[in-house]
Design a protein around this nucleic acid. Structure first.
Lengths: 218, 218
DNA sequence: GCAAAAGTGTTACTTCTACACCCATGA
DNA sequence: TCATGGGTGTAGAAGTAACACTTTTGC
């Protein structure tokens, strides 16, 4: 180590993940009912600590991978939380990331193993530390980004109906949308493509399935 | 320390400040020509290390205060940069903040003492480490926030003319605006108030001075 | 009296919002 | 045949963008 750094304090650095999923018209979060210390028995986000050889983005990916077995999940940094007493056990600075995934991609066996649960955003339990602040900020980011950018499409299956897409939008922004106006706007998006397949599960008539094409960039 | 944390790595945590100022129709950054190690002789943002007893926001305030003697400066977190090799000397995770200040509030004596310089954004020199990435992200945030929120007004003196305000907007978004449309929009902002004073320095006729009132919240 | 910046309205265009009915199909 | 969700167009409102001339006054 260079002499310059000799007198400087060092800290634990954590990553906490706000994992959004979408099901039945509602946004959900993947939360842990902690069966480990600290704060055993309470609800928390999924987290982990930065290790020497990895970047902080890699830590986030790893934490998510360990829990879900999935990589290639869209993640975005929410912010860094560094209040002195945010973790009452030790001084830990935590960087929050939000992740968007399709609930159906998550193996229920893994959920059991880690005691992880999809909880409706409308029914969030109290969370440990400052995790609710992280969640609030992530929600706001999601709301701000959806109208402009085309994030959020990691929340749906590969093929989806326009009704499903609209429900997702409504869940994110928290208010109902006009069906015709919504479809007009989607029609103008280059990145959403109609397929020839139909989904017959939602109605007798059946609805065309759509997909995202290569023009999306998160 | 609790047993739980025993095997976890600890890291240096830095804060780097992107300090924006506005002068003569152009945005500037306050940069250090480093007369200290590491990277002596090169240009960098102003930074400092997190200490045990302070929150990361407090570190940012302190770093700025030590350089400028000013507190009460508007700051906002830009993001956290944690690539393994971003600082070639040691593993350091850095959280960037941007700050907005009036160039005239900065004491030139302090500038000399720390070898700090206001550099036009259009003429940025190469910066050490990943500082240019931080600057880019801060600029984008500034651009995104200006049209909606009313940030940016920390960049002007207490009293200012509409021409000055327009120049500032143009500098931030990087393109010219229509004078009449701009004034119309300002007139609709509750937080900008006309005063009875005039500034005669910019023209023979003189321009009314305006101020921000209490309705601004950053 | 003229140079130099301050100030001021109107019109076309684009975007957004609100709104209601027919369609296709399986049961 | 009917219940269910799928699909479609238009008109008014609001907001945005483009545009040119008069005013004031120190020199």
């Amino acid at each position: 180590m260079e002499a310059y750094y000799r007198d400087i304090d060092r800290f634990y650095i954590a990553v906490d993940c706000i994992i959004f999923g979408f099901s039945k018209g509602e946004l959900h979060l993947l939360l842990l009912k902690r069966n480990f210390e600290p704060a055993k028995g309470e609800w928390s986000l999924v987290g982990g600590f930065l290790k020497k050889g990895e970047s902080i983005d890699q830590t986030a990916k790893r934490v998510l991978y360990e829990l879900t077995g999935l990589d290639q999940i869209f993640m975005k940094q929410v912010g860094t939380f560094g209040e002195v007493d945010r973790d009452p056990g030790e001084r830990v600075v935590s960087t929050a990331y939000f992740a968007l995934m399709n609930i159906n991609d998550y193996d229920p066996e893994l959920a059991k193993k880690y005691n992880a649960h999809w909880i409706k955003l409308s029914e969030l339990p109290p969370l440990i530390f400052d995790h609710h602040i992280m969640v609030d900020k992530a929600r706001k980011m999601l709301q701000n980004h959806v109208p402009n950018e085309l994030i959020s499409f990691n929340l749906l299956p590969k093929l989806f109906t326009l009704s499903e897409l609209q429900l997702l939008y409504e869940a994110i922004i928290g208010k109902p949308l006009d069906k015709r106006n919504f479809r007009k706007k989607v029609a103008e998006m280059d990145c959403v493509e109609k397929t020839n397949e139909k989904d017959k599960s939602g109605s007798r008539r059946g609805a065309y399935l759509y997909k995202f094409n290569d023009l999306i960039q998160n």
